[in-house]
Design a protein around this nucleic acid. Structure first.
Length: 492
RNA sequence: GUCCUGUUAGCUCAGCAGGUAGAGCAUUUCCCUUUUAAGGAAGUGGCCGUUGGUUCGAAUCCAACACAGGACACCA
């Protein structure tokens, strides 16, 4: 474990520290503030002020040792500051510091502010304490840690070396926090529903399976909380939301991780149009609170998040954005022919809705760069959504697309238990026909509906993808602190 | 799951007409009290991802495997 020669050398330095009567893993520490506070307080200083005192804790990132003095840069959670450590101030202790202190160590220093020849505000150290001895060396100071594998596997190192990574995750935290405030301030109740499901419902996806020993039953890690949240509407809550993990046992790529975070909220006595309005308000709220420009650079493109968002019906999108000939959209054989002409695979179910979805995925989705609502979804690809009152072939549903990916999906909820039961049965048929991601029958959910779920609408928002867009990160792994990785060595 | 690319010192990277392994940073020793990727001098450090094959000889060519990155497929 510690047989690396660099580690051994550093352990010896820790021992040297102990022999001086000092603890290499000091527990009692204090500071007057962050480096940023120091810079703010003394930013206008022109020379030096020995009457001042400031105490800081930071990690040594740069170390420039000279014979009887040295400059170091210490970093804390919010910034980095140069300190000046000299024999003048520290006497004999300085000699030991030279021998023992290394890049990576955490130190506590007290001193007074001064400005160097080159005009850099620094701390002139009067008191120097090693707080935590780092026995593993940090990566190279200039290029830092580049290797993506190491960055993901040792995220803590990535965070030490790449301050912009810390920034992304701080933003992520703020986004989640602001979403929470947004819904709380609108009288939504935050709830937690099961992660272990007897039936993997609420989405079309393959689940992870686990086993409950005491009950002697298999359980599924949830693929969506939807059906539980809607049971709560039956129970009498008017608005609920949950921000939590979903698990899907599927492929991984730059937009998919096996566990990912979703916001789902359900809103009694509201309709799909209300969801779309609320979604825009949510974006307005986030952009205001995070002080983001409405036009964000993402990858090669610019995304304009100004509200209201562009809206197309599913059919309009196929024709106007996807340039699919309008006259084939009601003819199953002609759509099949069109797909074949473009060398595309046919969906497993050759119904109108599935064919539209295939056309949409291939000709429309990637072209939707600015936030765009797509409405009026075919009913047969929307097993949980409410049927439209005027046109029974479409669902009162929308999806929000940004930069070619789906970010949100919402609909007026189906609350007719008999219709819901029939749709589950239809999904079972699709499953029998080979669609292994078709929805499971959930009789308990149907039973809940049978007691009367108020008219309601609900929406899911992919938090990871939203964070990617708002922080200009192009891989979901760059917005997940610990993305899924294969084990380095075989685990039986 | 498929294809492409990568894997060399702690880190960042060179080296690949096949001929005993290189740089910068880090590290060790020495000098240095205003440095900015500090500087100067001298060292240490490698199962060249793993396992096989071709060859007198493999970091270099070939194959399989492992892991990663990217693209595609799957997937709301």
């Amino acid at each position: 474990m510690f047989d690396n020669k660099y580690v051994e050398q550093r352990i010896e330095k820790g021992e040297a520290l102990k022999s001086l009567g000092k603890n290499p893993y000091e527990n009692r520490v204090s500071r007057d503030g962050l480096t940023a506070d120091f810079i703010e307080k003394f930013g206008n200083l022109e020379d030096r002020d020995e009457s001042e005192s400031f105490r800081l804790i930071g990690r040594i990132k740069f170390l420039r040792l000279m014979g009887k003095a040295s400059f170091m840069k210490i970093e804390d959670s919010e910034g980095i500051l140069q300190i000046y450590v000299s024999k003048n101030q520290l006497g004999d202790w300085f000699g030991d510091i030279k021998n023992i202190v290394e890049v990576g160590d955490l130190i506590e220093v007290e001193g007074f502010p001064f400005v160097t020849k080159t005009d850099e505000l620094s701390l002139n150290v009067r008191e120097f304490k090693i707080v935590t001895k780092a026995i593993s060396p940090l990566p190279e100071k200039f290029h830092g840690l580049q290797d993506k594998e190491l960055r993901y596997r040792q995220r803590y190192l990535d965070m030490i070396m790449n301050s912009e990574v810390r920034k992304v995750f701080k933003t992520r935290s703020r986004i989640v926090s602001e979403i929470r405030h947004f819904f709380e301030s609108r009288e939504f109740l935050e709830v937690e529903t099961p992660m272990l499901h007897p039936i993997a419902g609420g989405a079309n996806a393959r689940p992870f399976i686990t086993h409950h020993n005491a009950l002697s039953v298999d359980r599924f890690l949830r693929i969506a909380p939807e059906l539980y949240l809607k049971r709560l509407l039956v129970g009498g809550f008017d608005g609920v939301f949950e921000i939590n993990r979903n698990f899907r046992n599927e492929g991984m790529d730059h937009t998919h991780n096996p566990e990912f975070t979703m916001l789902e909220y359900y809103w009694a006595f509201h309709r799909v149009e209300d969801l779309m309005k609320l979604t825009e308000e949510l974006f307005d709220h986030l952009f205001e609170k995070l002080e983001l420009s409405r036009v964000l650079k993402y990858d090669e493109s610019e995304i304009d998040f100004s509200t209201p968002f562009q809206t197309y019906t599913y059919r309009e999108a196929l024709v106007k954005v996807g340039e699919v000939p309008e006259n084939i959209l009601l003819s199953i054989p002609e759509m099949v022919a069109y797909l074949e002409k473009h060398d595309l695979e046919l969906p497993q179910t050759l119904s109108l809705g599935y064919l539209w979805a295939e056309l949409f995925d291939n000709f429309v989705e990637k072209k939707l760069i600015n936030p765009t609502f797509i409405t009026e979804f075919p009913i047969d690809i929307s097993p949980l959504a409410r049927r439209n009152d005027q046109n029974s072939e479409i669902a009162d549903r929308f999806e929000l697309f940004i930069h070619g990916t789906e970010v949100a999906n919402g609909f007026s909820e189906l609350n007719d238990p008999i219709d819901q039961y029939e749709r589950f049965k239809k999904q079972l048929e699709a499953k029998d026909d080979g669609d292994d991601e078709a929805h499971e029958m959930d009789e308990d959910y149907v039973k809940a509906l049978s007691y009367g779920m108020p008219p309601a609408a609900g929406e899911g928002v992919g938090i990871d993808r939203l964070v990617m867009l708002l922080t200009n990160q192009h891989s979901i792994r760059d917005v997940l602190l610990f993305p899924a990785m294969k084990p380095l060595h075989h685990e039986e």
